[in-house]
Design a protein around this nucleic acid. Structure first.
Lengths: 159, 159
DNA sequence: CCGTTAATGATACTGAGTCTCATTTATAAT
DNA sequence: ATTATAAATGAGACTCAGTATCATTAACGG
């Protein structure tokens, strides 16, 4: 995790996405504060599918002094910037945040056991362009969720 | 908002989906209680994009005696059955429920003004089948959300 | 290095959603 | 119809995720 490969204008997304997100904050007029940088690092580390409690925990381990309010404020900000996205797994009252590494995220949620299966290919690029034209919007990302039963639960309910 | 031209062609479709949902409950082994039927009617009436508070309100107007807990229990149940789906608009702490009339729902959320623009065509049928084969799952519905700026906010941020 | 102002941390607070449990009600069997 | 029974309910106390407030701090442009 300590390999510094910044400066390469090609690839190595994982490392660079942190820098990319920082740049996004700056560009949007937000200050690059310690709390925000720590949040980005922690989120990258945890990798997504985490609750606010998870984030609160992880942030506290890195920097004891970062306040509860700032964590929630930053979660909201990063959501607005399309860096993360809250969603519901199961019927939990509290959302689960997923990363939108390249602006998008896709998964299947089993409505029986709440297992989450991620997948990559969505082929939505075309639709995205169509919508931009048709609706006059400017799209930066998306979340695609399928609901249904996973392999195990399909078998069970066939009883 | 938007010209939402869904279901205009079949007024009876609205009636039927209520029956359809009741049948689903029965088939899944759940009792057709007064609270649940009232909830289904209220949800159909409100048409989606509503918070639990909206539902609580509307239910109370129809039947004073239905308890708070039952409303939340039923929201969870209907989510599990794929009849509704909680999602986040803006950074609200409390979810907004959308109806999944035919198992699916699609919208664009403006990350600046929180406007929601629904659209119908998603062309995900093929992907759905592919995933069922590839992952061994049995899919019953989906939610597709795009994030970005609406026409108005695209203009504004050009400042 | 300083001034401005966004952002912060502490903490009290709010209220959405949950839990518990005695009571009711939907449904199937008689 | 009557009854058995297990699921579902309503009441209301309770929890804790998320918010509001505000005095203090620190990012960043000049």
């Amino acid at each position: 995790m300590t390999e510094d490969c910044q400066g390469n204008d090609t690839m190595s997304h994982l490392e660079n996405s942190l820098e990319h997100h920082k740049a996004r904050l700056r560009k949007a007029g937000y200050k690059l504060t310690n709390a925000r940088i720590t949040m980005l690092e922690v989120l990258q580390d945890l990798g997504g599918h985490i609750t606010s409690a998870d984030v609160l925990d992880a942030v506290a381990k890195v920097d004891e002094t970062i306040g509860r309010a700032s964590v929630f404020r930053t979660l909201d900000l990063l959501t607005q910037l399309g860096i993360i996205r809250p969603t519901y797994i199961g019927t939990s009252q509290t959302p689960t945040y997923v990363m939108l590494p390249n602006g998008h995220h896709h998964h299947v949620i089993c409505t029986h056991c709440n297992r989450v299966i991620e997948f990559e290919d969505c082929g939505l690029g075309e639709l995205e362009k169509k919508l931009e034209t048709a609706l006059g919007v400017s799209i930066t990302g998306h979340l695609l969720e399928f609901y249904g039963l996973c392999q195990q639960c399909t078998g069970l309910s066939a009883t």
